[in-house]
Computed example of a mutant assay.
Amino acid sequence: MYVSTEVSGGGAAWELEQRRLAATDDDQARGMFFQGALHVIACLGGEGAVARCKGVAGVWEINPFHLYPVSRYLRMVSTAARLLGPGSRGFDEVLLRMGAQASVDFLSSLFGRELLAETMGSPRTLVEAMGDAYRMAVSYGERYPQWTGERSVRFVMRRDFMPAVYHVGVLRGALESVGARDVRVRGRQVALLESEYEMSWR
């Protein structure tokens, strides 16, 4: 397994704040991602960090299928960056774990189980369906594959609010869920809300 988090300052709290300021009230994400991020925060920082992040984001009771403003999610993650970054292997590692958790949570949901049933264990079919999968999970952005080989692809995300390293965790987890081996994922931030991912597997 190979993972690259080639991102310029992707985990910095200040950059997350810039992303938050670019979001509108119509830009929303499902509660399962809030819960997943809080699970990682609890593992790394304890319940005190969880309470702090919930309070800053203004979310206490979370319905995993309800849509919440992504600006609140970004406020939560930005707070976690300040709290957890110095005590871990850097906040990029925290974001990678949050992305991996998001993949697990989505794929275990009703939406995710339907997606996995439709792909029938094919990584290529899964990648083709990822744009639709993201649309089930969040209300914003555009995502699509550009194939570079039978088992290699450039995956483009436009107007997405999370740093590239977060989606490295998401995409790696998704590919491994359908049995892809030797998964390689490299993320590159093109602009504040635009990123690209080189993925390959066997």
Rank of each mutant, 00 (worst) to 15 (best):
S103Y: 06
S200R: 13
A100M: 13
V50C: 08
V77T: 15
A133W: 00
W201R: 07
G173V: 01
E61H: 00
L74N: 06
L83N: 01
T119N: 09
C53D: 09
E194Q: 13
Q35F: 10
L192V: 05
D27V: 10
S109K: 04
E142L: 12
M120D: 15
R20P: 06
V178P: 02
G141Y: 01
G169Y: 02
V165A: 09
I62C: 01
M76F: 02
D92F: 04
W14Y: 11
E176Y: 02
P69G: 09
E142S: 11
D160Y: 13
F155Q: 01
V77H: 08
G99Q: 01
V40Y: 03
L107A: 10
L95E: 04
L192P: 04
S4P: 04
E17F: 09
R124W: 01
F34K: 00
A37C: 09
E93R: 08
Y2A: 13
G85Y: 03
E176G: 03
V170N: 05
V178L: 06
G58F: 01
A29E: 10
D26M: 05
G141R: 00
A23T: 15
G149L: 00
I62G: 00
S88W: 04
Q18G: 04
R124M: 05
F34G: 02
W147F: 08
V138Y: 09
A57M: 00
G9D: 14
T125K: 15
E118I: 10
E196T: 13
L95D: 01
G46F: 05
A13V: 10
M120L: 15
Y166M: 06
A23C: 15
Q146N: 12
G31K: 00
R82E: 15
G46P: 07
W60G: 01
E142Q: 11
R124Q: 06
E15S: 11
T119E: 11
M199D: 03
F91H: 08
E142K: 12
E128I: 08
A37G: 04
D92C: 12
Y197H: 07
D26G: 10
A22L: 10
R89I: 08
Y68W: 12
G58I: 00
A129C: 02
T24D: 12
R143E: 06
V94N: 06
E194Y: 07
G169I: 02
P163A: 11
S122W: 07
G87L: 12
V185M: 08
H167E: 08
M120I: 07
S71T: 06
F65D: 14
A137G: 08
